[in-house]
């Protein structure tokens, strides 16, 4: 067990380092996040000037939500990307054969690798634009240490849920060979249902109820609501439980799919 833990840690650490080598791309990305954050802020300000408590958010909540959204885009990899894209590429090229003969769990490997990547993106693409937003606007911050901790847990769970979704998308390449179509579809669904463009709290009627039980709600809406203090006390634990449940369901599903993929490759020789 300890040996496996040390392997996963080593994998995550190297994944972090791997992303950190592309400095220019990181800087360009931070710049993009800042620009889009500003644009969204102006739109949201216009909306909240019309309706000062739309969706139960005040203007400060809304602006804070924008910067949290910019911070989470790359951290959870809303539009795919990250370690799961490596898997899809390796299936396409056939390099996945190398992964298969190693005495290592594929799901654990890619999860560790994606967590390392997410931490790098959180520290760069997450923190920097948020600091930029905080300089220009008044933002709201977690009210207590407990909320900070809950937000941290929620951010990790946001990554694991999105990893589960992205892994399923990538694993489809075992059957389709090219996952581009499914990836595009998944990116649109994720962008819409994560609340990245329009917060889920603004969705009308039953669409809001539906969107808030789908896995994509874990990407941004749940961590943001914890940060903003919309979930307090037992509510906050429930929200974390919701994310944890989706993590378990998706990872179990991924495990099953990889098992099938393995059978397909090994038995049918695909």
């Amino acid at each position: 067990m300890r040996a496996t833990g040390s392997l996963w840690f080593a994998v995550a650490q190297r994944s972090f380092r791997r992303y950190s080598t592309y400095r220019a791309a990181t800087l360009a990305g931070i710049f993009t996040n800042c620009v889009f954050g500003l644009i969204f802020c102006f739109v949201y300000i216009a909306v909240w000037n019309q309706n000062p408590d739309a969706g139960g958010y005040d203007r400060t909540d809304a602006i804070t939500y924008v910067w949290l959204g910019q911070a989470m885009i790359m951290t959870v990899a809303v539009w795919n990307g990250g370690a799961t894209d490596d898997l899809a590429a390796r299936i396409k090229s056939g390099d996945v054969a190398v992964d298969l003969y190693r005495p290592v769990n594929l799901l654990g490997w890619y999860l560790a690798s994606d967590l390392g990547r997410a931490l790098f993106h959180l520290l760069t693409r997450g923190v920097a634009p948020t600091v930029f937003g905080a300089v220009i606007f008044d933002l709201r911050y977690p009210a207590s240490t407990l909320t900070w901790v809950q937000f941290a847990v929620s951010a990790v769970l946001a990554v694991t849920v999105s990893f589960g979704v992205r892994m399923l998308v990538s694993a489809s390449a075992f059957w389709l060979l090219d996952d581009t179509g499914i990836k595009n579809l998944a990116a649109v669904l994720a962008m819409f249902f994560s609340g990245l463009v329009v917060p889920l709290v603004l969705f009308p009627g039953w669409t809001r109820d539906l969107a808030s039980v789908l896995p994509w709600a874990s990407y941004l809406q749940v961590p943001a609501d914890i940060w903003l203090g919309k979930h307090v006390g037992g509510d906050a634990w429930m929200a974390l439980g919701f994310q944890a449940l989706w993590t378990l369901v998706l990872l179990a599903f991924c495990h099953g799919v990889l098992q099938l993929a393995n059978r397909k490759v090994v038995v049918q020789g695909g």
Binding site: A97, L100, Y101, V265, V266, V267, G269
Partner: peptide
Amino acid sequence: KMLTGILV
């Protein structure tokens, strides 16, 4: 592939 076990 059969000798490495990635093909039955």
